[in-house]
Design a protein around this nucleic acid. Structure first.
Length: 386
DNA sequence: TGCCCTTTGAAGTGG
DNA sequence: CCACTTCAAAGGGCA
């Protein structure tokens, strides 16, 4: 159940509070809070969003909520899913929205079946898109890219009624806390996720997208493409490594998504469909405004989702810190720079850097550096006997 | 090929 | 404690 104001035992200490609206919300601050109901406030926000959203479709400008209901691309999932969200304690004001939203499509809920004792699907099954691909979908937010396969394996499990299975997933009893069953847990053998059970393993020990238990996890991203992380140790300088090893090295454990990120994941496709936009920067602007236009209850849904995300992430990776991923970009840039500077005695690099012609072997600084190195060497040799 | 843009929120860092 | 920074996602644009 979304925590509305009163909180309700956020053991992480995370606030998950609604923040004051920054930009558009400035106008609202002048309005006495008691003068409006939540709905009025939401309407007001919506109107503000519509004003600022020139690029949206006319229909969307008229009533984005209605459009959302009409154009909801996730209807497919609605039809495939029984309406059990209320059972999961997720009652909302706008069923049209929430039916196709993050809650209704928890792949984890679907994934709960494959891990039942008699589940036919292996935890390592490729059909389970839990490992986050570069353009994958977050397990808590199914979105459109999820194929119906996942649902056919999940909610329509022959072993268990979807309703029950999902309830079990949501209310999965946990010895540790109220950890939801959003992440797929193996039934027995692997056991409960508790730090005391030695779940934590250094990411170096993990395979691609695999948790130590062999369970694929979205936060673990294999090294490939954009997200590739350098071979790096906090106490060591980055070291060059053979390419083959590079590919098989440690994956990156990503940060858990915050409420807005979860919202973006869910709504992005919808915005793209409505606005025929593809540029993420523009889409994110729209999503940001829509986020502000959401009612407290609607936002609370995502805050709660994010809270559970963090909670679960913490359980899965007790030793992980966001710091682990800090400085990746900077390191990359720095290493690039170091790489280009690493061999100052390279006429080729030198010429390239300073745009010198072929006849010029050394630029001034490099020549100086080279001579300095040479001098140091001789000096060292000279002083060594002493 | 890889960074930038753009959003919000969480968490880390430094003064 | 507060302000600032970084990173989560996404994908087109651009150097």
């Amino acid at each position: 159940m979304p925590q509305l104001g009163s909180g309700g035992g956020d053991d992480l200490g995370a606030t998950d509070e609604m923040l004051a609206f920054k930009d558009e919300g400035e106008q609202e601050e002048k309005i006495p809070e008691n003068a409006f109901t939540e709905r009025d406030l939401a309407d007001l926000k919506s109107s503000l969003v519509n004003e600022s959203e020139g690029s949206g479709s006319p229909a969307a400008a008229a009533d984005p909520e209605a459009i959302r209901r009409v154009q909801d691309p996730q209807r497919v999932y609605q039809e495939k899913l029984p309406d059990h969200m209320d059972d999961a304690g997720m009652k909302h004001q706008d069923p049209g929205m929430y039916k196709g939203s993050a809650y209704s499509g928890y792949p984890f809920l679907m994934l709960s079946d494959p891990y039942l004792p008699n589940g036919s699907m292996s935890p390592l099954s490729n059909k389970v898109p839990v490992v986050q691909p570069s353009h994958g979908v977050h397990p808590l937010t199914p979105l459109i890219p999820y194929s119906n396969d996942h649902f056919s394996h999940g909610s329509h499990s022959p072993h268990l009624p979807a309703d029950i299975s999902q309830k079990q997933a949501v209310h999965r009893p946990s010895q540790t806390s109220d950890i939801p069953g959003f992440y797929p847990l193996p039934p027995a053998g692997v056991g409960q996720i508790t730090p005391s059970m030695g779940w934590f393993t250094h990411p170096l020990m993990l395979g691609s997208g695999m948790h130590t238990t062999g369970i694929p996890h979205p936060a673990i991203v294999p090294h490939s493409g954009k997200q590739e992380m350098e071979h790096y140790d906090r106490n060591m300088k980055p070291q060059p490594e053979p390419k083959r090893e590079k590919e098989a090295k440690k994956p990156t454990i990503k940060k858990p998504l915050n409420a807005f990120m979860l919202y973006m994941k869910e709504m992005r496709a919808k915005v793209i469909a409505e606005c025929t936009l593809k540029e993420s920067a523009a889409i994110n602007q729209i999503l940001g405004r829509r986020w502000h236009a959401l009612s407290r209850e609607e936002q609370a849904k995502y805050y709660e989702l994010a809270r559970k995300e963090r909670q679960l992430h913490m359980q899965l990776y007790p030793g992980w810190s966001a710091r682990d991923n800090y400085g990746k970009k900077k390191r990359r840039t720095r290493e690039k720079q170091q790489d280009s500077n690493s061999d100052p005695a390279s006429p080729k690099k030198c010429r390239a850097r300073f745009g010198l012609n072929q006849q010029t072997d050394w630029c001034g600084p490099c020549s100086f550096l080279q001579q300095f190195q040479l001098l140091s060497k001789y000096l060292f040799e000279f002083l060594k006997p002493l």
